[in-house]
Design a protein around this nucleic acid. Structure first.
Lengths: 211, 211
DNA sequence: ACCTGAACACCGTTCAAGT
DNA sequence: ACCTGAACACCGTTCAAGT
């Protein structure tokens, strides 16, 4: 019944005292630090514990295994991306197609650029089977926000807003990482934004029936 | 000077005798088998060696480390995808925009569906830093094929065919995996093809100057 | 209630010894 | 020329003992 894996990734115990709350925070921060300085392959539970100033045993009191550490960081990251899309959608209610396309693409790209150092490391974790639920959650938030946005577009009505929202979400969440894996020099980010906006506009224009 | 990592992933020695050629093939096949049956996390060098009917020592005579095993499989997979795009481009020389969009999307999707069982496992490997070169190579093949295709389009001339080819490649190589991570039921693949084709057509139409 | 760190199981990799 | 498998180093995880 249900997903038998989730419980293993849930924090093992909730901190009740100030000392342990500080401990959990320190471990979380240490995970990010080690991820950035040593990379995901050299990330070791002992190393994280040491960086956090505690022993391995303590780490395992709050996180059931190594993956749970990385999941916690990934969860925060994906949630930030979903939030960026949601905000952009809220800010563009009632706008026209071109503005919508530009707004959503720009917001997502900005959010990713803001945490561009950590993203590559996290996409390793994301591929592990059990990250699917997290990605699914972030994806759904984006889809729902875009769908609502399309309902209010000033330009026209769409046949199937949910399918369109699904496609646009898949394209930004999927394509941008692909762009990022390459050298991604200064100007490339600008070019990516321009091309994706053009693409979204064309797609939206083709998908809506008479205004 | 140059990429210091590549040599470590190169086969350690080239097989000279029939026996060793058979050994290398067996190890390669065993890697795929274990990947499919046990998943990337439970893939063990000992397990692969055992499945191939040799000892661990023998495995390490031809592959310098565990990653090299997975790289070999990933390389073959990416090469198949690039080839699919190249073929589709060759077959659509001189076609119009809509046919081009449909042809490229369809070819890539078909190639991925054909090896859909192994893809998820491989995208774990792909994220490891040193897979960048392989992805870059497959991406460039696709970009060049699409660029050449655009030059011959019957519909119109494009301002910057390379940028367009780059964008389309990023979108198919990036988005389709995103689609695949979700349940991807029977009909979803058809829908993905339809939506991506629509998107490509709109984008191409918007990017070309007067016919 | 929270922390410690030695101990255990397991995996990647090597190398002396075999045919 | 090719193969074997015990041995080593290292890492994830646990648990008896501490405060």
């Amino acid at each position: 019944m249900g997903n038998g894996l989730a419980p293993t990734l849930t924090p093992r115990k909730s901190p009740r005292q100030d000392r342990s709350i500080a401990t959990v925070d320190a471990i979380f921060e240490a995970t990010i630090q080690v991820l950035l300085s040593d990379g995901p392959t050299r990330l070791t539970t002992t190393r994280v514990a040491h960086r956090a100033g505690v022993s391995v045993g303590t780490l395992y009191q709050y996180f059931p295994n190594k993956q749970a550490l990385l999941f916690a960081v990934l969860e925060q990251h994906l949630s930030t991306l979903a939030e960026a899309v949601e905000n952009a959608c809220r800010d563009n209610q009632g706008a026209n197609i071109e503005t919508i396309a530009a707004g959503v693409v720009k917001a997502y790209l900005a959010a990713r650029m803001a945490q561009s150092e950590i993203s590559p490391a996290l996409y390793l974790v994301a591929m592990e089977l059990d990250a699917r639920a997290l990605i699914e959650a972030a994806t759904r938030r984006s889809e729902q926000a875009i769908e609502a946005l399309l309902f209010g577009a000033s330009d026209g009505r769409f046949n199937d807003p949910y399918v369109i929202a699904q496609t646009l979400t898949a394209v930004i969440f999927g394509t941008v990482p692909a762009f990022c894996m390459r050298v991604m020099p200064h100007a490339a980010s600008v070019e990516a934004e321009k091309q994706l906006t053009l693409m979204f506009s064309g797609y939206l224009a083709a998908s809506c029936k008479a205004a």
